[in-house]
C-alpha cells in the first residue's frame, strides 16, 4: 500500500521535468479509463514512447486510473449510450460503422466511447493542472517533504526487512 505512495513521492522529488511527469499521468488517464485492449491505446503507447513522457508516472497513473475507471464505468456507459443514440449523429455513426478502421476501433461500444470521450476531454486540463500542482509542490513543499520522505523511506525499508526476516 505504501510502496506506490513512496514511488510517487520519489518521482515528485526527482529531477524529471514537471511536464514529463504530467504527460505520463495524462496518458495514463486515457489508458486507465478506457478498455485496455483497444486500438486507440496503441496510438497512446506510441505517443507515450515517442514523446518525453515519464514512463514510471504513466505506470503508476495507469494503476490508479484503472481502479477509478471501474467505479466510473456506469457514467461512461451512460455518456456513450446517449451519444450513440443521438439522432443528429446517427448518420455519422452509421458511416463509421460501415468503415473497417472505425469498426476495429470498436467505437460503437457504449463504455469505450464514453470513457474515451471523457478522458480525451480531460487530457489537456489534467495535463496543465497536474503540471501546475507539481510545480507548486516543488516550490513550496519539496524541502519540507524531502526530510520527511527520506525518514519515511528508511522506516519503510526497515519494516520490510523485519517482515521478511520474521518469515
Amino acid at each position: 500500500m505504501w510502496e506506490p505512495l513512496l514511488k510517487f513521492i520519489k518521482l515528485l522529488n526527482s529531477e524529471q521535468a514537471p511536464h514529463q511527469l504530467s504527460l505520463g499521468l495524462a496518458f495514463a488517464l486515457i489508458v486507465g479509463f478506457t478498455p485496455t485492449l483497444s486500438l486507440h491505446n496503441l496510438l497512446v503507447l506510441f505517443l507515450l514512447l515517442m514523446l518525453r513522457a515519464n514512463i514510471s508516472a504513466f505506470l503508476l497513473g495507469w494503476a490508479i486510473f484503472s481502479l477509478l475507471g471501474l467505479l466510473l464505468d456506469p457514467l461512461f456507459h451512460l455518456v456513450g449510450q446517449n451519444l450513440l443514440s443521438q439522432s443528429s449523429l446517427h448518420e455519422m455513426w452509421t458511416g463509421m460503422y460501415n468503415n473497417s478502421f472505425w469498426r476495429l476501433s470498436h467505437f460503437n461500444n457504449t463504455i469505450l466511447l464514453g470513457s474515451l470521450l471523457i478522458s480525451v476531454l480531460a487530457f489537456i486540463p489534467f495535463f496543465f493542472l497536474s503540471n501546475r500542482l507539481i510545480r507548486l509542490y516543488r516550490e513550496r513543499m519539496q524541502e519540507r517533504f524531502k526530510t520527511f520522505s527520506q525518514r519515511f523511506t528508511k522506516l519503510f525499508k526497515i519494516g520490510q526487512f523485519a517482515s521478511r526476516f520474521s518469515r
Binding site: P35, D73, P74, F76, H77, G80, Q81, L84, S85, H90, W93, T94, Y97, N98, H106, N108, N109, T110, I111, L112, G114
Partner: peptide, 14 residues
C-alpha cells in the same frame, strides 16, 4: 454483460 463491458450498438450496414 452490459454492466461490465458496455453495450455494442448496431447501426444499419451497407
Amino acid at each position: 454483460a452490459e454492466r461490465l463491458t458496455g453495450r455494442d450498438i448496431r447501426f444499419r450496414e451497407n
